[in-house]
Amino acid sequence: SFNTVDEWLEAIKMGQYKESFANAGFTSFDVVSQMMMEDILRVGVTLAGHQKKILNSIQVMRAQMN
């Protein structure tokens, strides 16, 4: 498990989005775990492969939080 959203993004090789997530207010796992595709688009993730990777990881995160 990760301590910060930045660490999580690095771990899934999506570190290039750290600033975008932070600027959009997605700075805690409570918020990130609620993200939908529209949120991912809003933070500027436009590549389908990256969207899928982030969404898949969020689903895993949700499962671990319950």
Rank of each mutant, 00 (worst) to 15 (best):
L9Q: 00
S1H: 13
V60A: 15
V60Q: 14
M14V: 04
A48Q: 10
Q59R: 11
V31Q: 10
A11V: 11
M36N: 15
N23I: 11
M61D: 03
T27Q: 08
G25K: 05
F21D: 01
A22P: 01
F2P: 07
D30Y: 13
M36Q: 15
K53R: 13
Q59G: 09
M35G: 01
K52I: 14
E19M: 14
R62M: 09
Y17A: 00
N23H: 12
S1K: 15
H50S: 04
N66K: 03
A24I: 05
T4L: 05
I12Y: 03
G15E: 10
L47S: 13
A11L: 07
V43N: 02
F2Y: 12
E38P: 12
V45K: 01
F29H: 03
T4K: 06
Y17I: 04
L41S: 07
K52L: 13
V5S: 02
Y17H: 05
Q34G: 10
W8N: 00
G15F: 05
A22V: 10
R42A: 14
L47Y: 10
K18F: 04
L41Y: 10
G49M: 14
V5K: 01
L9I: 03
L41A: 11
M35A: 03
G15K: 05
T27M: 07
K52M: 13
N56G: 10
L47C: 10
G49P: 13
D6I: 06
S20A: 14
M14G: 02
N23C: 07
M65W: 06
S33F: 13
Q64A: 12
Q59T: 09
R42D: 07
V60T: 12
V32Y: 01
D30M: 11
Q16G: 07
K18H: 04
M14D: 01
K53S: 09
I12H: 04
F21R: 00
N66M: 06
I40W: 02
H50A: 05
E7H: 07
A24W: 08
G44S: 04
Q16L: 06
R42N: 13
T4N: 11
M37C: 09
S28F: 04
V31P: 04
I54Q: 00
H50W: 03
A63L: 10
S57E: 15
H50Y: 03
W8F: 04
G44Y: 02
Q34L: 11
